[in-house]
């Protein structure tokens, strides 16, 4: 099962790293759609400027969906506050 991580404002939505991602989800677009339906407040945070996603610590910057598997670590980050 893919592991989900939440940072910044996303921790107000969820901190559950054991969230059970359905097997039917195969890419990042399907994942964000599913999270938007599953977690209250996720969609609003995802649409905020500066929100970003990383798969296995690589930022997803392509507009096309990136495939995800059970072994992946997927992180959702709100806009960076900076150091």
């Amino acid at each position: 099962m893919a592991q989900l991580l939440f940072f910044g404002r996303f921790t107000d939505v969820s901190t559950d790293t054991a969230l059970a991602v359905p097997d039917s989800i195969t890419n990042t677009q399907e994942l964000t759609d599913w999270l938007s339906e599953t977690l209250d407040g996720f969609r609003a945070e995802w649409l905020r400027p500066g929100a970003r996603m990383a798969v296995n610590k690589e930022l997803v910057i392509e507009s096309a969906p990136v495939s995800v598997t059970d072994d992946d670590e997927i992180a959702f980050m709100s806009a960076l506050s900076g150091g």
């Binding site: 940072f7 910044g8 404002r9 980050m77 709100s78 960076l80 506050s81 900076g82 150091g83």
Partner: peptide, 12 residues
């Protein structure tokens, strides 16, 4: 410092 302030993944 300028890059740490804008690109380093920290949340406050």
């Amino acid at each position: 410092m300028d890059y740490l302030k804008s690109e380093a993944p920290f949340w406050k």
